[in-house]
Design a protein around this nucleic acid. Sequence first.
DNA 1: TATATATATCACCTTTCGGGTATAATTTCA
DNA 2: TGAAATTATACCCGAAAGGTGATATATATA
Lengths: 75, 75
Amino acid sequence: MNLNEQIKELRKKAGLTQVEFAKRAGLGLRFIRELEQGKSTVRLDKLNQVLEFFGYHLEIKRDESKDIEESGRLF
Amino acid sequence: MNLNEQIKELRKKAGLTQVEFAKRAGLGLRFIRELEQGKSTVRLDKLNQVLEFFGYHLEIKRDESKDIEESGRLF
DNA sequence: TATATATATCACCTTTCGGGTATAATTTCA
DNA sequence: TGAAATTATACCCGAAAGGTGATATATATA
């Protein structure tokens, strides 16, 4: 699941519409919409503002090899 | 460790200077500098460009309670 | 000392974000 | 089924900010 889809899920689980969410998180409605639609050029601080609202944060992770994922071993 | 510090670490481990890294990743030198210095308003696509270069990606994680972290239990 | 990093300019262009409005398309629910 | 709510697009405009190159100076750091 992509970042934008996860955010949408979080909002839905919180029982909020985009309008309500935008208001409560202190962000523009269009920003919320574009974010949930997968806009890739959003500003990091705005994204963090969204995540903080839901009690989430960003972390970096090493890309996983499909091979490892599916077979449980390297190569 | 913060995101910016982790990126700095990745670059160092790769044995790259900021100049070299900027060139190879196709990004401006000043952007790299500001990113490593913790600028919070960078564009997400640019950050992803950096992470992809190192084989990393972003994930969202639920904030952890200090209590759980340190005691291993809730409350 | 030589290299790398940090900080600061000037200028330019692009983009984001925001509010507002309007119109589909989709989903939800009575 | 049908109406209402929600979401998705698409414009307008404006203010603010990002990203870039080039340049300069200072401060680490090896």
